Amino acid sequence: MTFAPMIISLPVSDRATSYRFYRDGLGLDAEGELADDGFPEPLQFVVNDGLRLMLIPTGGFGWVIGRHEIAARGISECVLSLSVAAPADVDAITERARAAGGEVVTEPATQPWGYAALFADPDGHLWMVSATPE
């Protein structure tokens, strides 16, 4: 069975801040009709043909997940990973993320699995960007 598109949903505290981070920091395109605040609703970004990233305000996210709790900032339950072609791409995306308000957790460097960096978005969600050696 296949699912297309797959949607990853993340809780966010501020739609405008998150919108700018994912647009400017990761270069993702948002899709959907604009809401009263000027941002698409639902706020979804196209990662690729089969994957969307949906950003849900924290209160709405709590409603969606029911009796479960949203992890506190600094408590990470997953790392979202982006694979890129070359170390220069790792450097460029890391700098764009930093400039857009992200926190670089691990500066770009050679790791056992390739050249990688780790950064957090404005809500603390962790992203790894890596280029694997050929």
Score class of each variant (00 low, 15 high):
P40Y: 06
A71G: 03
L26S: 02
L51A: 14
P40K: 05
L126V: 06
L53N: 04
I8Y: 07
F21I: 02
E103C: 11
T110C: 02
F45R: 06
V46G: 02
G102H: 09
T94S: 14
A85R: 14
R23C: 09
G114S: 10
E41S: 15
A35K: 08
A120S: 14
M6K: 11
I56H: 02
A4T: 15
G62A: 13
L26Q: 04
S18C: 14
R23V: 11
W127P: 02
M1L: 10
D37P: 07
A97H: 05
L34Y: 01
V90A: 02
A100Y: 07
D121Y: 05
Y22S: 03
R98Y: 08
A117C: 10
F61M: 15
G50R: 06
T132L: 04
S83L: 14
G124C: 12
T106D: 10
Y19H: 14
A72V: 06
P122R: 06
Q111M: 14
E134M: 02
C78F: 12
P87C: 10
P112L: 09
G38K: 05
W63Y: 01
T2W: 06
L82Y: 09
R96F: 02
V64N: 13
V79F: 08
V12Y: 00
V104L: 10
D29V: 08
V84H: 02
S18I: 07
E41V: 05
P5G: 12
S81V: 12
P133D: 11
R73K: 14
A97K: 05
G102P: 12
W63D: 12
S18N: 14
A85D: 14
W127G: 01
D36C: 01
R15D: 05
V129K: 00
G124D: 10
E103K: 15
T2E: 09
P108V: 05
Y19V: 00
R98N: 09
A116I: 04
F21L: 05
L80K: 00
I93T: 05
L55M: 13
F39V: 04
D89E: 13
M6P: 01
S81I: 08
A72I: 01
G60W: 02
A120H: 06
A4Q: 13
R52Y: 04
R98K: 14
I70F: 09
F119G: 01
F119D: 05
D91I: 10
R15P: 03
P87Y: 08
T58P: 01
P133F: 03
A117G: 04
A30D: 13
N48A: 08
T94K: 02
L118M: 12
V105K: 05
A120R: 07
A99T: 12
P40S: 09
V105H: 01
V46W: 00
A86W: 02
A30P: 11
